[in-house]
Design a protein around this nucleic acid. Structure first.
Lengths: 141, 141
DNA sequence: CTACATCCTCTAGCAACTAGAGGAGCAAGC
DNA sequence: GCTTGCTCCTCTAGTTGCTAGAGGATGTAG
């Protein structure tokens, strides 16, 4: 039987960096793994699974606290999944909101760049638009 | 003649919160304004203009350092605006990238939520998808 | 003149890591 | 057995862009 992999391999397999793994342990997101004689962390399959779960959730933009809740849910499969559903829905709403404002920004930045005649700053719309909020194409911010 | 407005009014007019204004002064983004007898900051029109400029740039997602550069450009209008243009272009590329990845996340979150049958966690697609990266709709992360 | 709002400085905290110091363990080659 | 060099350990402090609070001074309205 294998004792599990050291932190470096766990990092490579899960895609979470070594110091970040230790950080997750420190804040209690990850339970402390077994240690070898030489005091080194050794991660087994379930630890790696959990790490991948965390990484994936982080990539999707879930906050640490939300992940904490999701992990707790995962450990107790008989609970109704309304909580998980709610967390995902809140995240979706957030993502949609961000896309909306970023799209507005994009339009404005494009207009700025087009307006810039590549002359002097005095005639540059980048500065001008930023200095005078009233010139914004989108009032939404 | 007016001596300028105190920090609270400056905050209201510019949309930048009081502690944030002080913070900007502290990090040298904003030059220290005049002080009254009682040691209170008083902001004049040009200070307010600058504050609005900063607020707007922050809303557009510019980093403090980029804003510092933009402010320096604004103070020296005879410089070529290629720098400001470059900063705006970099920001545009960044914004576009963010929109792309957020759109991918949105699709994935929607699929997760739709797949959730509102039953038990054991059958919850939100948890399931998070746990198994292979189920992702988008491999880009 | 007394409330009460606003202001001052200073320090510490937030998320979510990242970087570095200083030291110990371990595996491989000679 | 020994050295080389990589990985690992703990600990502290730094990052970005603020935000919160303590403890005190000042300005203003009734």
């Amino acid at each position: 039987m294998t004792t599990g992999v050291p932190i470096g391999k766990a990092a490579k397999r899960s895609g979470v960096k070594v110091p970040t793994i230790r950080y997750y342990e420190q804040i209690g997101l990850l339970t402390a793994p077994a240690r070898s004689d030489g005091n080194r962390r050794h991660y087994d399959a379930s630890d790696l699974h959990r790490l991948s779960f965390i990484r994936h959730a982080r990539e999707l933009g879930f906050e640490i606290d939300a992940i904490r809740t999701l992990l707790a849910l995962q450990d107790d499969p008989n609970q109704p999944c309304a909580t998980a559903d709610g967390i995902a829905k809140a995240r979706l709403a957030d993502v949609e909101q961000r896309i909306r404002s970023l799209s507005a920004l994009k339009t404005e930045l494009q207009a700025m760049i087009e307006g810039c005649s590549h002359g002097r700053v005095a005639a540059c719309r980048v500065i001008e638009v930023l200095a005078d909020h009233g010139q914004c194409l989108h009032a939404g911010h």
